[in-house]
Design a protein around this nucleic acid. Structure first.
Lengths: 360, 360
DNA sequence: CGCAGCACTTGGACCGTTCCAACTCTTGCG
DNA sequence: CGCAAGAGTTGGAACGGTCCAAGTGCTGCG
């Protein structure tokens, strides 16, 4: 039988029960060197003899030693961690942004700590607190925030980049987004070019929603079609798109119905698709439709939606670039970058039927 | 002009440039108390006089002090952080799992650190290293892992729960998943109940794919329809589902075509939808279709897919429960929980047309 | 009056690293 | 031979918290 606990009088070298994970001291002892030398080996210092380096590496392996990131970042005052704040994991476009972000950050030895602002019903203030306590080296805000009050304060202390949104404009936070107004122009020009005259826009919320609506209205005006522009407001969901489209397309509505719809995003565009189907309208024969974001939804064959590509991946890459720059020069003035969107043509638009609505 | 650096001889009280964030000592000094007392206030100890508590809170506010999580977890040997490993953020069902996980973990003061195994092309070994260095208090693996070799070792040291998958079975890792075989039976019974006889299954990969296929085959066998069961393999993507469906449904194929398809998941089910449309088959009039996972895709009106609800949210909740239990009792034997799935009826199934294929 | 007991407060050790100044050998050169 | 230079190695002081044993007053009781 073995003694499960040290006999009295014996110095309590090892505590019974919870055996802690090995530390740098344990490794040093096993390798017969000082903890400083182990630290040097861990950092790949060139001024360590091969013999000792070998001994240390073996000890690390035998003990299964893993450096403690907390202790390390405590003294180094860097965590190599970037906080990423998402507003809604259910909206698929952010995945591409993350992908773009990750490629660069990972190459620079940074890891991403993600939080969904909607998932944990935290206000801007609270997520800020959590990220500050963790001492993340930087912050990326992806998309629209429900509450931006806390952000200004955080941006003062932490390198911050806003990706996929144009606000809030802060003195020390960079902004990387796609040119929403221009994207809306692309979509609208495309529909006008096909011969459509009476065109509806299904608007979204926030500044991004405003910009896309503005682009639509400006383009209609430029073509002398201001009187034919219809705007219906939605909420960016499929359900909202469906309801708005029912209002737009019902025969009960006075005057001609629009022959084309430009939707705020793919999700609400799909709502339009559903409403059109129920009203017996074929897309694209009876109704042309353009969405926004070019998500994988638009690429589903059964939906096959024309959509404005907001270059999420590129936005993510550039946001990472910005963040790295800002981490190097925290006091640089805030930059504001726009990525040029492109229209992705698939199967949801066509010239208006029989020229109906084509006459000025 | 101000001196940018301390004059020689002057004790370097404050470093020029980077003014560090305030520490507990700074707060103590400002409030005129010891750092120990500040610590007590931070922990909400009842044995602090109201006067001093007030002074400390004011100092904290004035300085904008935030406790350093690294320092705190170093001595407490707890990080209050749970590592969450996702395999693919593009697959929408995990969002619900996360939601369920979060509700319980957040209530217990734990935060989630997410990593996408596919996003950073890390092998099982490497993510394990990162999480171990961070000393996360626990680990949740959501879905299928590309490489599980590292997991066994991690599970020995870290409370670990596997959610949404049935493998690998490890002595100290709990498993919470939906009963895939049973879900497949539900879907198949539903189709048989409608009168379908020749039914195809579009299979998926991994153990989950196997279980769903097995459930399908067993049910067909139980109804004496083994000879009418067709299995085509796919890869869980829309593209894969499309191609498999083209193979399944093309008139060129000898014998009668199946009148119903049970797809491994919603995404590949949508591929089937697309293929059916191109081949001129109406769903559900000419072809019945059932998917799996009950993702928001299946709820899109224009798709409106019958789907097996895998209770992701409940899986997430139970996984959190398991993890909390295991953190309390690390040496408890591994538990293996199955959540019962339910079939969600929408618009993608109907009795076979004119009884074709209904005769035994 | 002396002192036990309570309420509150404090200094200092410790957590597991990194970093720096200082130390010990070798080696080579004048 | 003496010593400077360099390579390799080391102890100890941070880093910013928590926790514990010990301290300080003050009150009330014998």
């Amino acid at each position: 039988m073995e003694r499960s606990n040290g006999s009295p009088g014996e110095p309590p070298k090892e505590r019974s029960g919870a055996d802690r994970p090995p530390t740098i001291r344990g490794v040093a002892e096993r390798a017969g060197v000082s903890k400083s030398l182990v630290s040097l080996v861990l950092q790949g210092s060139p001024r360590v003899s091969d013999a000792k380096r070998q001994a240390v590496l073996e000890a690390i392996d035998e003990l299964g030693y893993r450096p403690n990131a907390a202790a390390r970042s405590l003294v180094a005052r860097r965590t190599h961690t970037i906080g990423v704040l998402l507003n809604d994991m259910r909206n698929p476009w952010f995945v591409d942004v993350l992908d773009g972000l990750n490629s660069l950050l990972h190459a620079h030895g940074l890891r991403m700590l993600m939080a969904d602002g909607r998932l944990d019903r935290r206000t801007g203030q609270e997520f800020a607190r959590a990220f500050q306590e963790l001492r993340v080296d930087g912050l990326v805000v992806v998309g629209t925030l429900p509450d931006t009050t806390g952000l200004a304060e955080v941006a003062e202390r932490l390198p911050t980049v806003i990706a996929g949104n144009h606000e809030p404009r802060l003195p020390r936070a960079d902004i990387v987004a796609n040119d929403d107004e221009r994207g809306a122009r692309l979509a609208t020009e495309h529909l006008i070019g096909l011969g459509h005259r009476k065109i509806a826009h299904l608007a979204g919320q926030g500044l991004v929603g405003d910009l896309r609506r503005r682009g639509f209205e400006a383009t209609m005006r430029d073509h002398g079609l201001a009187a034919n522009a219809v705007v219906e407001s939605g909420d960016g969901t499929e359900e909202g798109g469906y309801r708005a489209a029912v209002r737009l397309l019902s025969p009960a509505r006075g005057g001609r119905r629009p022959t084309a719809v430009f939707a705020f995003n793919d999700l609400s565009g799909i709502g339009v698709l559903s409403a059109a189907g129920e009203l017996g309208l074929d897309v694209p024969a009876d109704l042309s439709l353009v969405g926004y974001d070019n998500t994988y939804l638009s690429r589903i064959r059964h939906l096959w939606l024309n959509s404005v590509n907001n270059a999420s991946h590129e936005v993510g890459r550039r946001a990472a670039r910005c963040l790295l720059d800002r981490m190097a020069h925290p006091d640089a003035p805030a930059a504001h970058q726009l990525v040029t969107p492109e229209l992705e043509i698939r199967g949801s638009t066509a010239p208006p039927w029989d020229g109906v609505g084509a006459a000025p």
